[in-house]
C-alpha cells in the first residue's frame, strides 16, 4: 500500500512538473533548451525557499528525477556545506552533492555515444 502511494505520488508530481514545462514551451513559446535551464534555476530557487523539500516528500523520484530536482540537489548540497564549513562551502557543496549525477552523465553519455551511431 505504502509502495503504491509512493508510485502514484511520483507519477503525479513528475507528470505535473512536465506539464508546467510543456506549457512554457507551447504557450510561452520558449525553446526546450531554455526551459531546461530555467527549470534547474527555478528548482534551485524553490529549494532555497524551502518549497522543494515538501515536493520530494510527496513525490519522491517524481520530484528528484525531473531537472528542477537537479537544482534542488545543488542547493541542498551548498546549504549543508555552508552550514558546516562557512563561506568555502559555497564553492564545493553543490557539485559534491551532484557528483554522482554529473559523473554518470559524462560517463554514460560518452559510452553511449562511443558504441552507438544516429540511426540510419
Amino acid at each position: 500500500m505504502e509502495l503504491a502511494v509512493a508510485f502514484i505520488g511520483a507519477f503525479i508530481v513528475g507528470g505535473l512538473l512536465c506539464v508546467a514545462a510543456q506549457l512554457v514551451v507551447d504557450v510561452g513559446r520558449l525553446p526546450p533548451p531554455t526551459v531546461m535551464v530555467l527549470s534547474v534555476s527555478l528548482g534551485a530557487v524553490a529549494s532555497g525557499l524551502g518549497l522543494y523539500d515538501p515536493l520530494v516528500k510527496v513525490g519522491g523520484a517524481g520530484a528528484t528525477v525531473p531537472l528542477p530536482g537537479f537544482g534542488h540537489v545543488l542547493v541542498q548540497g551548498i546549504i549543508a556545506d555552508v552550514s558546516r564549513h562557512g563561506l568555502v562551502g559555497l564553492l564545493g557543496g553543490g557539485l559534491e552533492a551532484a557528483a554522482m549525477g554529473v559523473t554518470a552523465a559524462v560517463l554514460f553519455g560518452y559510452l553511449a555515444a562511443l558504441f552507438f551511431n544516429p540511426k540510419v
Binding site: V35, M36, P66, F108, F116
Partner: peptide, 24 residues
C-alpha cells in the same frame, strides 16, 4: 511526450548523447 520526455534527467542524458553521437 515533449517536455514529459525532455525535462526528466533521462532527457538530460538524451541531450548529451544526441550531439555526442552526431558530432563523433
Amino acid at each position: 511526450g515533449g517536455m514529459g520526455a525532455f525535462l526528466p534527467i533521462t532527457g538530460f542524458a538524451n541531450s548529451i548523447v544526441a550531439p555526442a553521437m552526431d558530432f563523433k
